[in-house]
């Protein structure tokens, strides 16, 4: 029962770990290049979830001064992870954009975006 309670308290962390592994599994096993990029995105979301959950304090209000009159008594959530994750999201978007443009070029060059078919084409080239 205690374990169950501990797990309930840390749902976000467990969820982040599970999402990370799902993303990793997709990246490593899926032959479709687009799905690899989706897997990368799932992993990114997992890390962002973990980071933002760390900054959350139960019952805390948003860390903006002067938002409420009685702010001296209330607890604020940690704004630093949120700010960092904004940077992280920008990075993630640029990585996704670049990898998608690479996939377009790969499709133009090979005519497919399935990794196993590309490998077959390449081995035919080197052998023949």
């Amino acid at each position: 029962m205690e374990i169950l309670q501990a797990m309930m308290d840390r749902t976000n962390y467990i969820g982040a770990a599970i999402l990370f592994v799902i993303g990793l599994y997709t990246v490593l096993t899926h032959p479709n290049l687009l799905k690899k990029v989706i897997g990368i995105n799932i992993m990114e979301t997992a890390v962002f979830l973990l980071m933002v959950s760390e900054g959350y304090i139960a019952g805390g209000s948003s860390p903006i001064l002067g938002l409420t009159k009685e702010q001296a008594t209330t607890v604020h959530v940690n704004p630093l992870p949120t700010a960092m994750i904004l940077t992280g999201i920008v990075v993630a978007v640029s990585i996704t954009a670049y990898s998608l443009s690479l996939i377009i070029k790969i499709y133009e060059a090979y005519g497919t975006i399935e990794l196993d078919e590309i490998m077959e084409l390449r081995s035919e080239q080197t052998n023949g």
Binding site: F20, V27, K36, I40, V47, G88, I95, S99, L102, K105
Partner: peptide, 19 residues
């Protein structure tokens, strides 16, 4: 293209696990 894509995916895996 293929070398860059593979490098990019592994690089991103590396950065994410660092993060």
């Amino acid at each position: 293209y293929m070398a860059a894509f593979r490098y990019l995916i592994l690089n991103t895996l590396g950065s994410l696990s660092f993060l």
